[in-house]
Design a protein around this nucleic acid. Structure first.
Length: 945
RNA sequence: GCGGGAGUGGCGGAAUGGUAUACGCAUCAGUCUUAAAAACUGAGGAGGCAACUCAUACGGGUUCGACUCCCGUCUCCCGCACCA
């Protein structure tokens, strides 16, 4: 008998050995193709979460597979260490963010090592290290030098909980809440730093091929490209008033103009009579929150300015209104309103009795402006449009012709507008990279000279309970001299959005301690770009847009020049896209839980039971008790009768017991669901006694409430701690389970029982490898071939699974191979060379998934260290080919027989075999066969009669 | 409202237009045990004694053959949302 599988012993042993040997160190090696695998770096929030494991372990398995395929693999890990939680913890616990952050990093490093991943720790980066953020600041300066960073006063989104501004991408949802904390944002007028990501709008629409359609689509929608024309109207006073329209073919239908309330020309066009109304409307707009302003189905509001504009296509004089449905941030902040053919303009026109003029007539209909029930946005023929009358609008033909004409007339031109806004990077927080800018009373905005980087975050700071940045109150940081003129000046106190740090971390991994540039050009020339990136979908329009922008902006600042010049020009460019392929994994949700079943005793007050005692039951006991109570209730007769009989007030005698499952619980209110589905609210107090079935008192907090598959959170008590799982089952089992239990892209609810299946698999593998004494007797040739066949089929399926991120099917195939071996173990096949080969192959195939047990067993079967330097087993389709098939016979498409037959059967042989089978004969029933469909490679025969 | 994705056993999930439900969890039965757990063996989509019939959200269609392709409907999830 051999010893048992004890992962707690073998896992730390091999981790230490791999570490000591530098087994996974990644160095430039031009003789081998490289593979840069990258997974989104974690924020050091304290403990490694099961979600981190879910994101990283399968990525690691795939990186290991690429290694076995002969690639020189780089799979680094680091920490996105600047950010708000550290600062909030500082305010709450009086711990310095740095202390908090670095303690967390220390803990998470240890936890990450327990995963047994091939992370090359010599390349680790921590974005809050000065040697890292020095370069984050350097990038800011480069972008500033190249006109890609600018400071502007603007109405920006501000999170009142985080006490800082946010970029447009970081405001989510219908209620416009902060991406991080969920608080609805407010608007503030502030002077802030922006990056010109909009310069790259067009280029960002061109995505790398290896990106998921979903992300490409989300980014494309976010960028929001609209093609159309810019047409210059004029106010009556002669000021040009350009508008953007996607429908220049409706220009003749413009019956009024609308400006955004913030539009610079508003006061100029406003007549004295309308002045007070306009001012009142502007004031009202400013008071309203963004949510109120953009609420769906909101009635249109607006005010006439008294001014008029001239439509350049027909010299018509049309009134100018202001309305909040026109946004100053999009296009030119002014529109021509064509109510007949635009839903919003139509609603506005109806609201204020403005004229509606049809300029597109659909085929077979005759629309009239006054009678229109809704705007007509379909295709038709242009009418009331001077010499364009009769032009069909289907396709882009009409639009193109009008644009051509507008250009010829000099009143408009082809134009493209984007929804994308520039990236606001200023954050009014301490724990981030300071923006390297100095404000001098004489020189103005002065960038910190490169040789003075990094602008260090002072550590002796006082955190304001108000959440105000302590940098504002730190004289030594704040006060400095102007690098240009030497006079007294002040530093910028805002720090940079932490998405800045993560926009280029893939470059710092290449040479984390290089001090001449953000990255070593030799390393970059070899490793870039990232071949496979993995991470969550939630970054689709944030991090994943920013890092693409960064790469392109860096290229235009010449930062890649040297590295690119040292690179083989036949390889993909390194300065075009940061990541060639991307895969989004899903999320692990909490395990659904039943609520506790209880019987509560107390006194009714209206609909609420005031409880003095709670008894915890199991479901069956609760049900039994409910029935007993029901019986008792029936015996007593109707409650109201009883009340009458005893002269009681109505409701007084109602049952004072409630039995059911807890579905909600907070400090003093419990909601239970009875077996009939009705709900009861219970009120509990500190005096309420809670006892289990044995009569022991238990705390009220121990009562569980029903929980669906929801996002894990401490407050819901559904968090799964990987450390605990590793201690209990081992890292290999946790890795294996995470890869086996879900489709990686979907994720799903955790199932604490499900891991047993993986544990059994590993135990069986252990037993089959360490304890399979040869069975005497001559091995059957066919059985040997069958084993080899299975092995090769599994090689194929595992390789395929790893290629396509179908980790679940790959593990399933490995379980099947184990099952096959378990069965063969009892036969003379056990001990044959084919058996040895099968064991070797099983271990090699398992190595990417469960690296520790694979290494341990590899050693135990006498193979040389390390299994992780072995090539992936080669697949031989000839060996994998079935020699016997199940001929599936259908008659008229309905399955009638399954017949064993040798592979490679000809059609006539197959038909003869089928006709000989009585169950087939029965269904043919003497009829003539009209058609035969035979799929040899599938073993499928269909007889049509 | 616009755009995208998904509906398969009690559950997680498999299935290049060709044997639906692989693999696993849970369940049930048996072995072992004083007992329980673990472990092991076996059963299993539904209905029917059986022959068979019906099952991949629903309704149509294409095809010798549809979970897979096409059309329509319903439900759920995600993104955007007065973007001119």
């Amino acid at each position: 008998m051999s010893e048992k599988y004890v992962p707690q012993e073998i896992e730390p042993k091999w981790q230490a050995r791999w570490e000591a040997d530098g087994l996974y160190r990644s160095r430039i090696d031009h003789s081998r193709p490289k593979h840069y695998a990258l997974t989104m770096l974690p924020y050091p929030s304290g403990d490694l979460h099961i979600g981190h494991w879910y994101a990283m372990a399968p990525s690691d398995a795939r990186a290991r597979y690429m290694r076995m395929r002969g690639y020189n693999v780089l799979f680094p890990m680091g920490f996105d260490a600047f950010g708000l939680p550290a600062e909030n913890a500082a305010i709450k616990n009086r711990t310095h963010p740095k202390v908090w952050t670095y303690a967390n990093i220390e803990r998470m490093r240890k936890q990450l090592r327990s995963m047994g991943a091939i992370f090359d720790w010599e390349r680790e980066v921590v974005s809050s290290d000065p040697e890292y953020y020095r370069w984050t600041q350097w990038f800011f300066l480069k972008f500033y030098e190249n006109g890609l960073a600018y400071r502007q006063r603007a109405s920006v989104d501000f999170c009142p909980n985080c006490n800082t501004t946010l970029a447009r991408e970081q405001v989510w949802g219908e209620d416009r809440h902060c991406e991080r904390c969920g608080t609805p944002v407010i608007k503030k007028e502030l002077e802030q730093w922006f990056f010109r990501i909009t310069n790259y709008a067009e280029e960002l629409l061109q995505h790398p091929e290896g990106w998921p359609e979903k992300v490409k689509l989300m980014q494309t929608n976010w960028i929001g490209r609209s093609e159309g024309a810019q047409v210059t109207f004029h106010t009556e006073q002669g000021d040009p008033l350009p508008v953007f329209t996607t429908r220049p073919d409706t220009l003749w239908g413009a019956t009024f103009m609308v400006l955004a309330p913030e539009h610079p020309l508003v006061m100029k066009v406003t007549t004295p009579e309308q002045r007070s109304a306009v001012e009142a409307y502007i004031a009202q707009t400013q008071r309203q929150s963004e949510i109120e302003r953009t609420a769906a189905d909101k009635e249109k509001t607006g005010v006439f300015t008294g001014g008029y504009a001239i439509n350049p296509v027909n010299q018509e004089r049309i009134p100018i209104w202001i309305a909040d449905y026109v946004l100053i941030t999009y296009g030119s902040g002014a529109i021509m309103a064509v109510p007949a053919h635009d839903e919003r303009d139509f609603a506005f026109a109806r609201q204020f009795g403005l004229p509606v003029r049809v300029v597109i007539q659909p085929e077979g209909e005759r629309l009239e402006g006054e009678r229109l029930a809704e705007a007509f946005v379909g295709d038709g023929v242009m009418v009331n449009s001077a010499h364009f009358d009769g032009t069909p609008t289907a396709g882009r033909e009409a639009i193109n012709r009008v644009i051509e004409w507008l250009e010829a007339q000099g009143i408009g031109k082809c134009a493209v507008t984007y929804r994308l806004r520039d990236w606001l990077i200023s954050r009014q927080r301490y724990w981030g990279a300071p923006i390297p800018i100095i404000y001098c009373p004489t020189c103005g905005i002065v960038p910190v000279p490169e040789d003075q980087l990094p602008v260090l975050l002072p550590e002796d700071v006082e955190f304001m309970p108000t959440g105000q940045s302590p940098l504002k109150y730190h004289p030594a940081f704040l006060n400095t001299t102007c690098p240009r003129c030497g006079s007294q000046a002040q530093r910028e106190t805002d720090t940079m959005d932490t998405f800045m740090c993560s926009s280029w971390y893939q470059l710092r991994y290449l040479s984390p301690h290089y001090d001449k540039a953000p990255f070593d050009p030799d390393e970059a020339a070899y490793w870039l770009p990232v071949d496979q990136y993995t991470g969550g979908i939630e970054h689709a329009t944030m991090h994943l847009m920013y890092t693409r922008f960064f790469t392109k902006a860096m290229r235009d600042c010449g930062i890649y020049k040297e590295a690119a010049s040292r690179r083989d020009p036949k390889l993909p460019p390194i300065d075009h896209e940061p990541m060639l392929a991307l895969y989004n994994q899903g999320m692990i949700l909490g395990e659904p839980m039943e609520g506790s079943y209880i019987a509560a005793f107390g006194a009714w007050q209206a609909e609420t039971l005031h409880v003095h005692k709670v008894v915890v039951l199991d479901e069956a006991a609760a049900k039994a008790m409910q029935e007993a109570e029901h019986t008792a209730n029936t015996l007593l007769g109707s409650v109201s009768e009883m009340e009458r009989a005893f002269g009681m007030a109505e409701g007084e005698a109602r049952m004072n017991t409630a039995i059911g499952e807890i579905i909600k619980r907070n400090e003093n209110v419990i909601v239970i669901e009875r077996f009939d589905g009705s709900q009861v609210t219970l009120e509990v107090t500190a005096e309420t006694q809670v006892v289990d079935r044995a009569g022991n008192s238990v705390p009220i907090e121990s009562l569980r409430y029903r929980l669906g598959a929801e996002k894990m959170s401490k407050s819901k008590g559904n968090v799964v701690a990987p450390d605990q799982l590793v201690a209990q089952y081992g890292a290999d089992a946790v890795r294996g389970y995470l890869m086996f239990a879900f489709r990686w892209e979907s994720g799903g609810p955790w199932d604490s029982q499900g891991i047993q299946g993986v544990v059994r698999w590993l135990n069986d593998v252990w037993a089959v490898v360490t304890d399979s004494p040869p069975v005497p007797g001559a091995a059957d040739e066919r059985a040997v071939r069958a084993l080899r066949r299975k092995v090769h089929q599994v090689i194929h399926r595992v390789g395929e699974g790893l290629e396509t991120f179908s980790f679940n099917t790959a593990v399933a195939a490995l379980m099947e191979l184990k099952n096959t071996l378990m069965a063969a173990r009892k036969t003379p096949v056990c001990g044959t060379p084919a058996w040895q080969e099968a064991i070797r192959t099983l271990l090699l195939l398992m190595a990417p998934f469960t690296p520790h047990i694979a290494e341990e067993l590899w050693q135990r079967i006498g193979e040389p260290y390390s299994i992780h330097n072995q090539p992936f087993p080669a697949y031989d389709p000839e060996v994998a080919k079935e020699e016997e098939i199940t001929l599936v016979v259908s008659v008229n498409g309905k399955l009638r027989a399954r017949l064993q037959a040798p592979a490679g059967l000809s059609e006539s042989e197959a038909v003869a075999l089928a006709l000989a089978a009585p169950e087939v004969q029965k269904h043919i029933n003497g009829g003539a066969i009209k058609k035969v469909i035979y799929v040899a490679e599938r073993g499928m025969l269909n007889l049509v009669i």
